[in-house]
Design a protein around this nucleic acid. Structure first.
Length: 749
DNA sequence: GAAGTCACG
DNA sequence: ACGTACGTGACTTCA
């Protein structure tokens, strides 16, 4: 039996724990049955809905998060030679106290006893003896050792290997980078370090230039691989598996369970590494240079598609990727518990992978005609503006060139008060142009308007049309799980997280994001989530109370700071509340409020005085990040800040501000990610399987909901989002969610 | 490819 | 003394 499962089964059947960890009412016998049936705890939880016995089912559903957390603990404990004194965990960087508290809370009685520092306590049964793992030196990476699988017999042999080892690293090769349309051309597998193969499926072409080499027919090979890839007892490991998951899902294979070495690396080293790409990680952790895609496929005009790569070369590249993925995974999986990031990995990011994959595959419908209409409208206005701008300038020039514009404004027209940036060029950004505009310079406001319209046209109305997928008629963004150091997602090609909303004219672009006939768009967003989290994390009594009472937080701040609530004081208060979240400085605040640094300092002092707790939060956060080099969220997500010790003061202070913000922004990201993970099963449970989750915009989730299910879906969505932190984290402030619906995204706000 | 600008939370 | 609020991605111009 592979160590993965052995650990699980030992832990669950043997005497080291008393039940399915964290799930009351499930004893060893039931646990063993469930494990046998599903393979591992994660899969049991994933299939909890199917379980017939209602009490058992409900218990698993209710305590899934505890079980997930415990699962990693079990993994940790099974990796150590038992019995091991609890205090010795300190040596591995695991603080024993929180662990002891957790074990007690979860009822790990016998495990606790064995870890209690008394190494005389014997394991009660033979089955719970330490897992002796065979120590085999890892072979060097040898590209020539990989096998090209072109016969069913060979494929079956590899599948048997995967079953034997209980895990398999998987990498798919395609003829493009867009996973929603790219064609699968081959799959590589690695079952042990150094033991990898490539299964070509669609190599060669149907034209005369490329002969089709011998390979198993794709449908046949996939039919053989499907049971393995869907086998709940076999762990599939990938690097950025979201891509492969979508490619395989399109071929009718729903891969599970999945580990992702990209996500693991991100959970371990966010902020500490610029890149979590396989090539860079191989260089860093394995001291190995991978074959690059360019080396295999070429670049530019001469670039070929992967299905045109000769099989021997393709095998070297593809099998190496699977081999490297597996090697990275073996390192990361032991680091996760030791560096205390298993909780965020198991509870938040790992289960998110298939959820985000589904969302990307779903896409969102965009009304092309509406965008065309807007593009035309904008173009007419842009042309008119260009004429007036050239009139004001007295000559024709490239308005989009900041160099030329600065030259015209500050040299040719001789306007005063310009400032120059690092490169010695005139600044012409929005602040500068707004200042000129206030001073009555007509060209400034014209350029601002021109910039807004050209931005909307080039980035949104024009570009978005290009992004509509030919096959699906929808726009499929790609979410990066490692994009933002704080733990947020980021969105690319296209970026759906920066669609305009702040101005009336920009907002119209959201009207082009429409629901299918019979559906409506539903947008649900957390209200002031970061301020609420700040109130909780900094333990500010007044803020917590205000959120509990549903008070307007900016008004409250205005009252406390300025003694009066009106438009101006509220606006200032709002600015200051944000400043707090972003790591305040007197100069920054002064610039934003239009006051002197001294006045800004007075306001800051007053804020700290009126909202005690904030100052401590900042001091504690900075103290911890200076000591450890990282910050943590309420879910244990780490962000590293190497610059916190920088010699350069500006760089260091930048890191300090980011470190103050990271736990708040990161916890918010954790919470919405957990809501996303739980949303699918919660909707299913209520018979709302037709509801589609389409987009995530940091504090907002967008759905496409059948018209007749809006009420029911709203209730479920609200409940899931508002309770997303529980039970792992209990907040002292309520989370508020605003929900809107309409025929399009614009109308759903 | 860097710099500047600006769209979002 | 730092013309800095935090976190992103896309587009344009220009070297």
């Amino acid at each position: 039996m592979p160590p993965e499962q052995l650990g699980e089964v030992l832990a669950l059947m043997g005497d080291s724990v008393d039940n399915i960890p964290g799930v009351p009412g499930i004893g060893p016998k039931t646990a063993a049955q469930l494990i046998q049936q599903y393979g591992d705890v994660e899969t049991v939880l994933a299939h909890a809905e199917e379980i017939a016995k209602p009490k058992l089912r409900q218990s698993l559903i209710d305590h899934a998060d505890n079980a997930r957390m415990s699962r990693e603990l079990v993994r940790l404990v099974c990796e150590s030679p038992l019995p091991e004194p609890l205090d010795s965990l300190e040596m591995k960087g695991i603080p024993p106290e929180p662990l002891r508290a957790f074990l007690e809370e979860q009822g790990f009685k016998s495990l606790l006893a064995r870890l209690a520092g008394n190494s005389q306590v014997q394991a009660p049964s033979a089955s719970a003896q330490p897992v002796q793992r065979e120590v085999r030196p890892e072979p060097k990476i040898d590209r020539t050792s990989y096998e090209t699988v072109t016969s069913l017999e060979a494929l079956d042999r590899w599948i048997a290997e995967a079953v034997k080892s209980g895990l398999v690293a998987v990498d798919t090769e395609t003829d493009g980078f867009d996973c929603v349309t790219a064609k699968l051309v081959g799959i590589s597998l690695a079952t042990e370090c150094g033991k990898a193969c490539y299964v070509p499926l669609e190599h060669g072409g149907h034209d005369l230039l490329f002969e089709r080499p011998e390979q198993i027919p794709a449908a046949t090979a996939l039919a053989r691989l499907k049971p393995l890839l869907e086998d709940p007892a076999i762990l599939k490991i990938g690097h950025n598996f979201k891509f492969d998951w979508i490619v395989l899902d399109r071929r009718g294979i729903c891969v599970a369970p999945v580990d992702d070495s990209l996500v693991m690396s991100f959970n371990l080293d966010a902020g500490g590494l610029n890149s979590h790409s396989m090539d860079d990680l191989a260089k860093k952790h394995l001291d190995h240079d991978c074959l690059t895609y360019k080396e295999v496929c070429g670049t530019g005009q001469k670039q070929i598609k992967f299905n045109q790569v000769p099989l021997d070369r393709a095998t070297e590249y593809a099998a190496e990727d699977a081999d490297v993925t597996l090697r990275l995974w073996t390192r990361f999986r032991t680091r996760l518990p030791h560096e205390r990031v298993t909780r965020v990995y198991e509870m938040v990011d790992r289960p998110l992978v298939p959820v985000v994959a589904r969302m990307e595959r779903e896409g969102v419908k965009v009304d092309r005609e509406e965008l065309t209409k807007l593009s035309r409208e904008f173009s007419i206005q842009i042309v008119a503006l260009e004429e007036r701008i050239c009139g004001e300038a007295g000559c024709s020039f490239t308005i989009g060139s900041t160099q030329q514009l600065g030259e015209i404004l500050f040299n040719q027209m001789g306007l005063k008060g310009g400032r120059k940036g690092k490169s010695g060029t005139w600044s012409t950004d929005v602040n500068e142009l707004e200042r000129l505009s206030r001073e009555g310079v007509p060209i400034a406001s014209l350029v601002l308007e021109w910039r807004q319209l050209t931005k909307l046209r080039s980035t949104y109305t024009d570009a978005l049309q290009q992004q509509i997928n030919r096959e699906t008629g929808r726009v499929h963004t790609s979410y990066s799980l490692s994009g933002a150091q704080t733990g947020r997602l980021s969105s690319t090609e296209p970026n759906l997280q920066n669609i305009p909303i702040r101005t009336e004219i920009g907002r119209r672009i959201r009207d082009a994001f429409v629901a299918e006939p019979g559906f409506v768009m539903l947008a649900a967003d957390y209200s002031q989530i970061e301020l609420r989290l700040a109130a909780h994390m900094a333990e500010v009594p007044q803020l917590k109370q205000a959120f509990a009472e549903g008070a307007d937080i900016h008004n409250l701040t205005a009252q406390e700071l300025f003694g009066a609530v009106n438009r101006d004081t509220r606006a200032s208060a709002k600015t200051i509340n944000f400043a707090i979240l972003y790591g305040i400085s007197r100069w920054g605040l002064a610039g934003r409020l239009g006051v002197t640094a001294e006045e800004a300092q007075m306001i800051i002092d007053r804020y700290f005085e009126r909202f005690p707790g904030i100052q401590n939060y900042i001091a504690d956060t900075l103290g911890k990040v200076r000591e450890t080099g990282f910050t943590t969220t309420l879910f244990g997500r780490k962000t590293h800040f190497p610059s916190i010790r920088a010699k350069n003061q500006g760089e260091r202070q930048g890191a300090e501000r980011a470190a103050i913000n990271a736990p708040i922004q990161g916890t918010s990201a954790d919470i919405i990610k957990r809501a996303m993970v739980r949303m699918g099963p919660a909707l299913e449970r209520e018979g709302l399987g037709a509801v589609r989750m389409l987009m995530q915009v940091h504090d907002e989730l967008v759905f496409e909901v059948p018209q007749d299910a809006v009420e029911a879906a709203s209730a479920v969505i609200r409940r899931v989002m508002e309770t997303a932190a529980e039970p792992a984290v209990s907040l002292s402030v309520p989370l508020g969610v605003d929900i809107g619906t309409g025929p399009n995204w614009g109308a759903a706000h």
